[in-house]
Design a binder for these strands. Structure first.
Length: 354
DNA sequence: AACACGGGGGC
DNA sequence: GCCCCAGTGTT
């Protein structure tokens, strides 16, 4: 028995016993009977799981699949409906591509996801990873599924000392050489589960690892040294001010962000530009209109590529209005497409709202 | 190849 | 605080 086959057998045996039960997975009984999961649910979960943890995704997945149980239903929703439901999950281009992809599956594939890696990758929001994951999990098509977990598992397994992301092609080749073509979906999920639960970034549980005897990093080095990564750059800081205007009846003034760039098309309270430097006191000059603005504090929020500090101003009994604004009632505020940074801002001015 | 793109959890 | 995460699309 060659070593690569040995590895996949051990991984699958481990997975048969230790597979986690997750909302987007079929039951162990169905899995034992070779039943395949609904491609729509596999797709939905994989999009949500991009750069997002299982714990965060669970509630959103249940909400989305209850609201839109199939691709036709999602296709009938508006982009804004989807954006509002996605609010708080981050990477909002995923939500717009989700809607676009649903439309394309209905229009170009008769409402069925294509059982083909290339056709899947042609759909918006589906890249190398997700195309391989859907093909493997939903259709049992053998394809190398390489995410952050798998990169770590295989970097350690073969003690790959090329730093990421340059090592990615090599890792993909290794995964391709190990994967089990008879159980492509289970193999993909087994390697990701292993990375999430055993082969963790810090303090991996090597004693519980089903493939510890095959691991070069464990035998010759220290698994925690892998994967090698390029040093990351320092995050620049930006500052600005945000203005929470409240009407006599308690409504909050909102506007929609532009349709491209950061937090595209999401809702926000009026703000100044987010610049690299700004002196807090003069920020009030950036208010959208004059009012009895009161300073309520400062909130901080970290984005992928910069840190933001917003001074929060608050005014009540505001009557002013404008074409690009709307008033959101207190009851409706949780249903607006408000990103987390804006919930922080509004909570700073109006505590106990969310 | 580098960058833009959110947010939350673990330690 | 720092690191990571079931990545994709654009330039």
């Amino acid at each position: 028995m060659d070593d690569t086959h040995n590895i996949s057998v051990k991984l699958l045996d481990w997975y048969d016993v230790h597979a986690r039960e997750l909302p987007w997975r079929i039951s162990p009984q169905d899995r034992a009977r070779d039943v395949l999961p609904d491609p729509y649910r596999v797709w939905m979960s994989e999009i949500m799981l991009q750069q997002t943890t299982v714990a965060t995704v669970k509630d959103y997945f249940l909400k989305f699949t209850a609201k839109w149980p199939n691709v036709e239903a999602l296709s009938k929703a508006s982009e804004d409906d989807v954006l509002r439901a996605w609010a708080g999950l981050g990477y909002y281009s995923r939500a717009r591509n989700l809607k676009k992809c649903a439309d394309m599956v209905v229009a170009e594939h008769g409402g069925n996801f294509p059982a083909d890696v290339k056709a899947l990758k042609a759909l918006p929001g589906i890249g190398d990873y997700t195309a391989a994951a859907i093909a493997s999990i939903a259709f049992d098509i053998p394809a190398p599924v390489v995410d952050g977990n798998v990169e770590r598992v295989f970097s350690r397994l073969f003690a790959i000392d090329t730093p990421l992301p340059a090592a990615k092609p090599l890792i993909k080749t290794k995964v391709d050489s190990v994967l089990c073509p008879m159980r492509a979906g289970d193999f993909a999920q087994a390697t990701m589960d292993l990375g999430a639960t055993i082969c963790t970034p810090k303090k991996p549980a090597c004693t519980h690892c089903p493939i510890r005897d095959n691991c070069r990093a464990l035998a010759d080095f220290d698994p925690e040294l892998f994967p090698y990564k390029l040093a990351k750059k320092e995050k620049p800081k930006r500052k600005g001010a945000a203005f929470v205007a409240v009407s006599p009846s308690g409504d909050v003034l909102l506007e929609q962000r532009r349709s491209s760039g950061l937090l595209a098309s999401m809702a926000q309270v009026p703000t100044t530009e987010w610049n690299s430097r700004q002196d807090g006191v003069s920020d009030i000059n950036g208010a959208p209109f004059s009012a009895d603005w009161k300073h309520r504090g400062t909130i901080r929020h970290v984005f992928t590529h910069f840190e933001l500090e917003l001074i929060v101003w608050h005014a009540e009994n505001v009557h002013s209005d404008g074409e690009n604004y709307w008033w959101s009632t207190r009851e409706n505020l949780p249903d607006e497409a408000l990103p987390t940074v804006m919930k922080k801002v509004i909570s700073c001015a109006i505590p106990d709202l969310f």
